[in-house]
Design a binder for these strands. Structure first.
Lengths: 144, 144
DNA sequence: TTTCATGCAAAGGTTTTGCATACGC
DNA sequence: GCGTATGCAAAACCTTTGCATGAAA
């Protein structure tokens, strides 16, 4: 979908500088597209090839990238906030969190459009995004 | 719905002690049923009539009550976790978070049952609860 | 050359923990 | 009386901030 160069262009257009740190953090998300990384996760991955990076820079970059809708910030209720690339699908992609083992799986579906319309009609609230989490037990844990 | 005495009975049955602190924290939620209280909120309210209570006790009580499904823990992405009484409706009650003013409103609907069934069929994940948040702009902010 | 980004260290906010004491049962 | 719950203070954990330096445009 979005390539690194596309995202750098977006940064440019918005008058943000394209620094090596921002580049390497973005690349980290592309190389771990299926995972939900915390700031600490990103920091540890990036430090291997870029040992001088600071944790504060990671936080600032994640904030920035969330602000401009490149990353999506989620909190699963275990400690830290986690981030994933937005990509186009993200609006219809939800999380299943296993209460036993803590694993987070993903599920794509869009049955919320009609619910959103109903909500706007009733309340006047204009929806721009939603977040849906399912809590329960994953297949593996059920088999035990 | 659930009265204080019912909840105390539940504590009893599970071999937890019914202390004045637990009682007063529960009463706080009953008296602020429409709000989403953080640990600090609860602490400040309770301290007015019970100045010796400790913040750690509040945290431990909120944890306990969430564990046994009396309270429901939510994180709206602004600092602290917040809590509300579960009550029976809570499974079909969702939150609308205004990106402008930060106000949290509630919306009741149950269109997720069919989605949950579909999810279980496809993935084998057994759902016990869900959490749905809508982000957008509230009526008041739209009018400005 | 100007301005924004970075690294470091310190501070801030939220939550958890250890331990001696107090209290429900 | 036994064992859990409490209060306090300290620590742990996650995140933000101030400031001097460094690098992108």
């Amino acid at each position: 979908m979005d390539k690194l160069s596309d995202i750098c262009q977006k940064l440019h257009k918005l008058d943000y500088k394209v620094t090596p740190q921002r580049r390497v953090i973005l690349r980290t998300f592309m190389e771990h597209a299926t995972k939900h990384l915390s700031a600490e996760d990103v920091y540890n991955i990036v430090k291997q090839k870029h040992p001088d990076i600071g944790l504060a820079t990671v936080y600032r970059t994640l904030d920035l990238l969330s602000e401009i809708d490149i990353l999506h910030k989620i909190n699963f209720g275990d400690g830290p906030s986690r981030y994933e690339l937005c990509q186009h699908k993200s609006h219809h992609h939800h999380h299943m969190i296993c209460l036993q083992c803590g694993k987070v799986e993903e599920f794509d579906a869009d049955l919320l459009e009609s619910l959103e319309k109903q909500l706007t009609n009733k309340t006047g609230f204009q929806v721009v995004n939603h977040q849906l989490k399912f809590f329960g037990y994953c297949k593996k844990c059920l088999q035990k």
